[in-house]
């Protein structure tokens, strides 16, 4: 049976993994490669790295880091941040990443999704989006897409954008709730479910995981295919194994041997 995936998220800033709440108060957590090995050995099903300062500093993503991770772990991992062209995507893929995550770039230039999918296959192109609750008339779902680390509203409806991205070639959608991110109070289930029901590709819940029950809810109630965890595991309050144990007990298909 296909299992539900747990994906630790590593925000990388100047070559170090950091964790902040809504991009503030960043704390140094460690070396990205060491942490990747630790999580892979600990049962993570996949990893995601965001080079969170690359876009702001207008520099390309740290390819050396991608290469080092690819040498050290042999599970799938996605990379986002600092990607501005198909050539950038190619560098990341050739360095050994399984997937590329595009977010603000795809809003500015949706063709990058189609170009990436044509070049590398849909399974390589992940659309990340940061929806926020909104009563903007152009957003009938009640959720609006934001960009640039929540700094800009786009006027785009989150569900419509997800559907369009899949039509263009996105193979997976990460729904990262602005309102829930960093709170550890649980995923934003409503928008995750709206998107999971609207698109034929896997949907990843992101932002807000604090206890295993939050992941169980994302899988059972929001119909997510995977869930991103950060603070709850980075803080060592929970291990991947403990989360999986709870998932398994709740009847969720879970990979238990690694």
């Amino acid at each position: 049976m296909l299992t539900k995936r747990i994906i630790p998220c590593l925000d990388v800033r100047n070559g170090r993994v950091t964790k902040g709440v809504k991009f503030k108060n960043n704390i140094d957590l460690g070396d990205p490669v060491e942490m990747a090995v630790e999580y892979s050995d600990g049962g993570a099903d996949e990893l995601v790295f965001y080079d969170i300062t690359a876009s702001a500093e207008q520099r390309p993503i740290d390819i050396g880091m991608v290469e080092s991770v690819a040498k050290a772990v042999h599970i799938p991992f996605a990379v986002g941040g600092g990607i501005s062209s198909v050539a950038d995507m190619e560098r990341v893929i050739l360095a050994g990443a399984e997937k590329i995550s595009v977010n603000s770039l795809a809003v500015r230039n949706p063709a990058i999704i189609a170009d990436g999918a044509r070049e590398f296959g849909r399974q390589c192109v992940v659309l990340g989006m940061d929806p926020v609750k909104s009563d903007t008339p152009g957003c009938p779902s009640g959720y609006e897409v934001t960009t640039r680390g929540y700094r800009e509203l786009t006027g785009m409806d989150a569900v419509e954008w997800a559907k369009r991205a899949v039509d263009l070639g996105a193979g997976e959608i990460v729904v990262n709730s602005v309102d829930a991110d960093g709170t550890r109070q649980g995923f934003e289930l409503t928008i995750t479910r709206l998107i999971a029901d609207a698109v034929p590709v896997p949907v990843v819940a992101s932002g807000g995981a604090g206890v295993p029950k939050h992941l169980i809810d994302a899988f059972n109630l929001a119909r997510a295919d995977a869930a991103i965890v950060a603070g709850m595991v980075h803080s060592k309050e929970w291990t991947i194994a403990q989360i999986k144990d709870e998932m398994h007990r709740a009847g969720i298909p879970t990979r238990l041997h690694w």
């Binding site: 539900k4 995936r5 849909r122 896997p202 119909r223 295919d225 990979r255």
Partner: peptide
């Protein structure tokens, strides 16, 4: 309920 492609561990 079954997304295609199948992506993940089986």
């Amino acid at each position: 309920g079954c997304k295609v492609p199948e992506i993940g561990w089986n």
